[in-house]
Nucleic acid binder design. Sequence first.
RNA 1: GCCGGUGUGGUGGAAUGGCAGACGCGGCGGACUCAAAAUCCGCUUUCCUCAGGGAAGUGAGAGUUCAAAUCUCUCCACCGGCACCA
Length: 878
Amino acid sequence: MKTNRRFEILEDKYCPKDIEQKWQRYWFEKGLYQREEDTSKEKFYCLEMFPYPSGKIHMGHVRNYAIGDVVARYKRMKGYEVLHPMGWDAFGMPAENAAIKNGVHPARWTYENINVMKSQLNRLGLSYDWQREIASCSPEYYRWNQWLFLEFYKRGLAYKKRSFVNWCPACATVLANEQVIDEGCWRCNERVVKKELEQWFFKISKYAEQLLEGCDRLQGWPDRVVAMQKNWIGRSIGLEVDFPIKGMDRTIRIFTTRADTLYGATFVCIAPTHPMSEILAGGSPDLRVAIESYGKEEEKFGFFTGRYAINPVNDKEIPIYIANFVLMEYGTGAIMSVPAHDQRDFDFAKKYQLPIKVVIVPEGDSAAGKDYILEKAYEEEGVLVESGQFSGLKSDRARDEIAQYLTKKGLGTFSVNYRLRDWGISRQRYWGTPIPVIYCERCGVVPVPYSELPVILPEEVKFTGVGGSPLLEAKEFICTDCPQCGSRARRETDTMDTFVDSSWYFIAYCLEESQRRASLDKDMGYRIDFQSAFDKAKVEIDRWMPVDQYIGGIEHAVLHLLYSRFFTKALRDMGLISIDEPFKNLLTQGMVCKETWRCTEHGWLFPEEVKDHRCIHCGSHAEKGRVEKMSKSKKNVVDPNILIEKYGADTIRLFSLFAAPPEKDLEWSHQGVEGAFRFLNKVWTIVHKYISKRGPKEVLLNCSKEIDVVASEDRRTRILRKTHQSIKKVSGDIERDFHFNTAIASMMELVNELSVFESETEEDLQVLSTSIENLLLMLCPFAPHIAEELWEAIGKDRSISLYPWPSWDEELAREEDIELVVQVNGKLRGKMVVPRGTEDEQLKMLALQDQKVKGFIEGKTVKKVIVVAGRLVNIVVS
RNA sequence: GCCGGUGUGGUGGAAUGGCAGACGCGGCGGACUCAAAAUCCGCUUUCCUCAGGGAAGUGAGAGUUCAAAUCUCUCCACCGGCACCA
């Protein structure tokens, strides 16, 4: 008998490995998460940022995709038709670096990684529709990049210009402004230098105003992301003023936001790359120096050109300087310098002994006209002095009047400037979308005709790691005929920034499979009729876009999200789509962090290199470092695969959803994972205990034991009430900005109550059965495998994910007796239990009669009694 | 410098004007066991205590309110974004 029982217990053990594989196979075979094509349902597009196929998933992926999967599964159960796709951001440098290092072709490396990562994602039990999978490095994907590029080109949204660009010497490629972090490369941290190159640009600046305006309509986005976008676009209103050059029939146009300081301008500075620099410098060798130190912050350098400009408001002649800190990319590339009211100009004036003239004094300061000796620039607003007819005006008023005065005279104009620059998309790399352009000696820049798209990336190239892009050596690729005149021509060897790929992939998922995969045959050259393919897909795109919930890391707050918004607006103007913002709701999940260890000798340490706060290598004190984002270099990563192996995907999912609300950073805790595992075991035990009591085929036990009827009813009511309260709470928490952590907490509460509930009668079992069914339904989005397994165990024959999300009965959820707090002057003094619906007057009376309360109001006058229904009674005494 | 965010027990975090600390982790005590693990039960903000309770308490200070972790103002600390942007 004893052995038999032991065997039973063994059989009932929660074994995640077995059940997870079983259900993953089941979902795959039934195609459960492919789109149902039921347009009667309301649509819900749930999207997580697609990963770069590095070859291994990390905890950041797990968290991101666990969050997304709960949303997708929940919405499905709520009756939506859910689109939940996944793909690969598959172009990029690591593949090329691997080719240089190990001799593996980037394509092979990438596709092998995709295979590995895909199986890892599947082990998490994520409910993706893999039918819609995309890989941005495949010709059937990037041909669309090329088509869109040519459409942009046709509309002047893509153009080529020679300019100073950010160059990363280590990566041997150009970087966009957005990819330069603290003057270093966003990828390798190498110091970025300026280099003059011919580059392709996307005219994102055309949409600066729209992108800014649209920010206010991004109600479903986190405030800080919207703020960062606004910051990046950086709009400022000011005045452009023409300064005539003395002795020349030309003017220099400057931009200023402080027209009120115009009388204080004592010199003019222009950028070294300004079109007038060459002429004004008159062959001075200093111009070289200025260009070389252009944009470098530590050294401010400038030189006098020998020419003078005339300040149009007072006809004063002031020297023209060429200065390295004046940026050609912002404003007009020229400024008027007002050292008295701009710290940077002040420093420059001090260095080159230029006059400083005060024209603004603090309001209420009667020292107007006195000689000021400034320690530093006075940058605040104030009242104008020494400013001709405008003296005495306040700054804001003066700005308007000066602007009007100059506009009338035709010397100035209102102007809006943006910090946002055009997006340089040329990359001198191999593993990216070839830019579909041909250079002909006779015809110049010739776009590749649509009928010849796509330009396929040649496979046979050498990866040496030296001498720039491998495409430069690919003669067969480069040499071609001009599509216009037929003479010999050269192909563009630069490829597109990979951010182009991710700027519209959310639309690619909407395209019918047949459109996306049309002419997969290599022999056909992946050729399709783009326009008509897009036209056919328009119904689908219009149905699914915008993305209802987008989920990803905060690191894309500017780059990817801004580019995607730009593409959406551009595509809208091209008539391809009908929306103007791509992502309705955005959730930026926090980072996954873990404690770190350091030793003065050996730097960062793995946890296993630390014993009793000592480094095992040198025995010196190992210091517990800060909690940092998991990274290889800080040696604080945990491998999701090992965890899945040990605890199962459900536990890992549950922990990463429970430990913190999704938008906050999550601190990894090994004990926390154990806790999540313990919870699932508890659920398992409860359900199996219930099944063994109930018997295998819903045959309820006949319990002859005599029990107190009233008491048992109370128990059952409590369980039933708790169940309905839990459904209400869990639903509410998910709806309220995805507060999964508190949703899981209330499921834990329910489980705690269920585990102490001893079922003895048929009625008990019925109540228990209801509770368990609801519990499993609620658990399903979070821990889908165990939910399926137990659902099957209690005798259901359809997958749990096909059942609707449970609803609660408000009546059943409501407490009969309410515990009411009694306060005296806002301080908690007593508690009383009253039946629901007790009148306010009655509550007042009861509160005043309370023994404990009496002690606090004795000898005092009751001024007021406040009753808050269902919550408290507050007695105000003095 | 400008913009945004955060600050709560030993710890991750709950509570968005109405009982501060739900739930989890850790700790302490107990049950079971020959023993251990697992599991289960109880306690766990701090201080005072006549053992009934009482006082303090959400970075600091002020204010609004019958009532503030929550709203307003000032300050402090930390984190993030932008920054020679005219």
